[in-house]
Design a protein around this nucleic acid. Sequence first.
DNA 1: CAAATGACGGGGCCCAGGTT
DNA 2: AACCTGGGCCCCGTCATTTG
Length: 559
Amino acid sequence: MQETRRTPRLSKSRFQLGLQCAKGLWLKCHRPELADPIDESQQAIFDQGTEVGRLAQRRFPGGVLIDEPYYETASALESTARALEAGAPALFEAAFEADGVLVRVDILNRVGSQKAYVDEAVGATTSSSGGTEAISLAGGEGERRRVAGTFDLVEVKSSTKRKEEHVTDLAIQRYVLEKCGVGVDRALLMHLNHHYIYQSGEHDPLQAFAFDDATEDVSLWLPEIPSRLAQMCEMLAGEMPEMTIGRHCSHPYVCSFHGFCHQGLPEYPVTELPRKGRDLLDQLIREGIWSIKDIPEHYEDLTKTQRRVRRVVVEGRPWFSETILEILGGLRYPLYFLDFETLHPALPVYAGTHPYLQIPFQFSLHVLERGESVASSGTEPDDDILDEEASAKISCSLGRLTHHEFLWEEPTDPRPALIPALLDALGTEGSIIVYTHFENTILRYLAEAYPQYAEQIEAVQGRLFDLEKEVIREHTMHPEYRGSTSIKHVLPALVPELSYDDLAIDNGDVATLRYVSAVFGEASEGERQKIFKDLKEYCGRDTLAMVRLLEAVYRSKIT
DNA sequence: CAAATGACGGGGCCCAGGTT
DNA sequence: AACCTGGGCCCCGTCATTTG
């Protein structure tokens, strides 16, 4: 009989992964090299989490940081034991191990430890029931009895609300702590406080966070833990488990083996059906249907859009609705094509803003004047035929196209300069074409923050026309959309000669990252100028893409 | 005639997917 | 991560028709 294989050590994050997908956990333990590389945007999210974590620690002055990195387990365990022994009032990143599971605890706060923890700022927190409640970190009057010698277990989250997966995150930690003989009084989530308004200088760790007591929900999960752990260990000792692809590949987290598990799919895989409900993918795969082409024509469980996708994929050619020119006939010249780039830091960087508030620092605006050859004013909605013909001509004789742009290059709040520049460039007449309601949301935030402009901004909002919703999503379909109506998918399908491939910045997330590094980072002047140039090219490409898309849609109906 | 059954539709909730 | 929106779905109330 072979010696029992050494059980791979689990960790908090591996436990969470195991709950999401057995195969994912198996791969993580046995074939970690197959994971997708971590991209820049993901890394930025991790970094942001670290920064929030550091601020959270300042909420517990006198706390002891166990600062061994994750791979120096033995040393971290020792340091933790020493700090506990020494009576540290709080521990950060404390390490514990039990049942082959290693956890590092964000914050472990000794109950009733010292005056410093008496809560002056009682966080108003959003509980799962939606109400707000006060949570005190010290034992005050009228509170339930606190068990001496125990700790509050605190998990810091950069989100502002509790999510399902946060509970199991705390549960596995509590399980390990108790196995190690550390009494846990409460299991708390420490979220960013959405209502925190940044003043200036250092962030205020008292105001910036809101606590959410998850003790009850955690205790409901606790009895589950041993059996789940046993299952995982058994699974890990065997061969790679069979798992089909499905919702668990991206819920609650996008799996790092997504790429590995999605290899070898057919050219138009069923995973690319848009807006799949919870069960559709499972159902199709169970029936052995992997390609959209193999879905029977009258398959019942497809939505209207999914049927459209099936049809264009099977027929191999795009579809444009019959009424598309009527929709476009509603546009008023001159046509403005608007796109914002924004910043939305977890921890605010401008005074008066709250966590995650989206702040525009750049816009691009293409303006299309009516073509000269077109006499029609386009204001006779009662004559469809004429209107359509007029519209068609417009597309052919693309009028004069001009471009405006704005980019704030200082580390100060861009909005006071951006708003007047935007209002000026937009004038008072003509449709403003945007891709999704995103720009509308930003305009609303601007109006809220700067009431002196509210009226003008609202007028602008009234002129918005959502190209993605009103035209692309409702009236077109193309096999190469690949199940997505995002502009990054739609442009190569309808305007193959125009792409983002030649740009140094080719998506919004990276644009934000680059901007932050240029304005707040240590970039040299040369690097800053390069980034500003790249940003202008990127944002300008987004609006140009909308111009060309509109043109392509017109063309589809007149040739 | 009163009660039961069924069709319709509004309200609320969740999900998916778009933007940064 | 937040936010927004539309579609799908379920629940439930209302009203009309059928049934005892």
